[in-house]
């Protein structure tokens, strides 16, 4: 079956000042699939995921060449509205970062910013349900989000991200600050979310990549060494360098 392509990276190069952090990256992100980026620290995987919604624009001294297509439109074109881009390509970060306000207001903050005024309560319920958090917080929606546990905060951040109805969700090591049970919940959630969203995840946990992703890219020193189906990468990778990394013989 031919997979639908949601995003496409073409000859992407990125420099932090004079440091060449991404080198000629070419890859596809398939619609309604989970794509994982793995590789040792400093390999460029987080840099690449931040290119997918132009988060790198926020860092000074960054120079990007090449194209990143979202539904065939280059997101680095001059006429692209970055705020709108980040609405379509949402992001969840390593450390849960809820706003210091109520659970309810965390969810409605984005939609309100984009002009939504009605049906906010329904939206809160729907998105908290989608993020598998509703049953735990339905009676305390007015409470400060900072009082939730780490795992709950991370699911709230996912719900907040879903509230603006993105097409793609980028996860930058979403479980590295969580315990195994919270991690399991987030992994189950990602598996559910891919039915409606396209997902890209950076993870240091190789078993996590194996468990939840459909495609995996292995990065080293700014290069994409191998991009393949996850089941291929973890049973018989094409590149011996990938094999050495995933079997823990180096890295």
């Amino acid at each position: 079956m031919k997979q639908m392509v949601k995003m496409e990276v073409h000859d992407l190069n990125l420099w932090y000042g004079s440091f060449h952090a991404l080198k000629d990256i070419n890859m596809k992100v398939y619609k309604h699939k989970v794509t994982a980026f793995i590789g040792p620290s400093g390999c460029g995987k987080s840099t690449l995921i931040r290119c997918l919604n132009r988060m790198n624009d926020l860092i000074g001294n960054v120079h990007v060449e090449g194209r990143v297509l979202l539904d065939d439109k280059n997101i680095y074109d001059k006429d692209v509205d970055v705020v709108n881009l980040r609405k379509r390509v949402g992001m969840v970060f390593q450390k849960p970062n809820p706003f210091p306000m109520s659970i309810h207001d965390n969810i409605t903050y984005g939609p309100k910013l984009h002009g939504k005024k009605r049906g906010l309560d329904e939206l809160v319920e729907e998105k908290l349900k989608d993020a598998a958090l509703w049953s735990e917080v339905k009676d305390i929606l007015g409470q400060n989000a900072m009082d939730l546990s780490g795992g709950q905060q991370q699911r709230l951040c996912i719900a907040r991200c879903l509230a603006v109805e993105p097409d793609v969700i980028l996860f930058d090591e979403p479980c590295s600050a969580l315990d195994p049970i919270s991690t399991g919940k987030i992994e189950d959630l990602i598996n559910e979310l891919k039915r409606h969203y396209t997902i890209v995840i950076v993870t240091h946990n190789m078993q996590q990549a194996a468990r939840i992703s459909d495609y995996t890219g292995y990065f080293y020193l700014g290069e994409l060494k191998e991009f393949n189906k996850t089941k291929k990468i973890f049973t018989n990778p094409d590149n011996p360098e990938t094999e050495r990394y995933i079997t823990g013989k180096f890295g």
Binding site: A210, F234, T235, N236, I246, T247
Partner: peptide
């Protein structure tokens, strides 16, 4: 050890 790839094979 949760082996993968060549080690798993």
């Amino acid at each position: 050890q949760a082996p993968v790839a060549g080690d798993l094979r």
